[in-house]
Nucleic acid binder design. Sequence first.
DNA 1: TGCCAATCGGAACGATTTGGTCCGATTAAC
DNA 2: GTTAATCGGACCAAATCGTTCCGATTGGCA
Lengths: 135, 135
Amino acid sequence: MRLTSLADYAVVVMAAAARRPAGARLSAGLLAEETGVPLPTAQKVMGRLAGAGLLESARGSGGGFRLARPAGGISLADIIEAVEGPIAMTNCITGSVHDCALEGSCRVKPHLNAANDAVRGALQGVSLATLAEAK
Amino acid sequence: MRLTSLADYAVVVMAAAARRPAGARLSAGLLAEETGVPLPTAQKVMGRLAGAGLLESARGSGGGFRLARPAGGISLADIIEAVEGPIAMTNCITGSVHDCALEGSCRVKPHLNAANDAVRGALQGVSLATLAEAK
DNA sequence: TGCCAATCGGAACGATTTGGTCCGATTAAC
DNA sequence: GTTAATCGGACCAAATCGTTCCGATTGGCA
């Protein structure tokens, strides 16, 4: 029930990017220096964010990253899912992997499903615009 | 943002225990067989649950486990915390470990704190009595 | 037009945590 | 007093996570 350091850094980096003027190109080095996140780690995090469609990336000299959507349209859940994968408290919720020995006879799954939705909802209710506010 | 397998098993075991008549002594072997959880793993899980005060344990022949409180007074958050430790999305929320390089200049911490409370609230709102229901 | 510098993308390594197993300590029953 | 049953803690293998490094790509400049 704890998010990984990568996801933590992702939130910090995204908030820093959202505080910048919209549309400006931001290099990983710049954001790393501004946030204090180690550069190689920032690179990896931003790469995943770009792969998930939250950032637009441009290669080569003068390249960099840019928010793919307005900050108000990006939720905390989006950022976490981009780095950690789907928000699913248990493996059986996603439905992809069926290696749970209890499959079928598990009586708590529907309840956990509801709890999972509640958690996800709480995270979707927080927008990046809010995270970028001064305090 | 996913709970560990141990915590997952803990929920299943606790729900099975809650479905039994209150006050009865339940051995780890019995609950393991009933739930399908491997016995050694069930032992470890129940040990942690007992250490956290959610189960009362009795050693020796005829011993076993028993719910320390009525099922209605045990929340999903309690079970998860018993196995995984405090529910804190980031390390900096607990306040115990201060190895975050951003300490002090981190501008997103207060927002994450609020999000953490929301998640925790969602988990505290689910009681073990609900989890033990048929469906 | 060719070269250079800057930046992103993916692959590999080491470390930490997690999950599973086993054996010893303790207690009640006979 | 002995036996059997059960919990408690220690140990080990596996997986994931975090970090680092190097190659691919692109725009700018002479």
